[in-house]
Design a protein around this nucleic acid. Sequence first.
DNA 1: TCCGTGACGCGAT
DNA 2: CATCGCGCCACGG
Length: 106
Amino acid sequence: MKPPTAPILAIRTAIRKIPKGKVSTYGAVAEAAGIPRGARLAVRALHGAVDLPWHRVVGAGGRIATRGESAFEQRFRLESEGVRFSGKRVAMKEFGHKFRAKRPVK
DNA sequence: TCCGTGACGCGAT
DNA sequence: CATCGCGCCACGG
């Protein structure tokens, strides 16, 4: 098996940092991993990675991006952690995780 | 090697 | 709100 590429690993690391009860977005985790506009890589990083809190990654604006049954499971898992929704979207303003800047503003 | 596809994002229409 | 197009990167046929 080919080892995952560095960017993929970096994104997975970022995903693991999302605390329970919070969510992040594909674009945000990619950016936090140093890959601006790498949302599609976040998708790759997540696919098949059962050891990650995949349910804490949602689409822009808090939209559930998974399809089919997983969409229901994702919402269920999030609500179980205390994440609340506003209609079909996660209330990002309250539950969106903010990654620490690489360079603390100070 | 080329090409289509994907749990995406964003601006334009 | 629905659609389209384009950008981005990795993977598989």
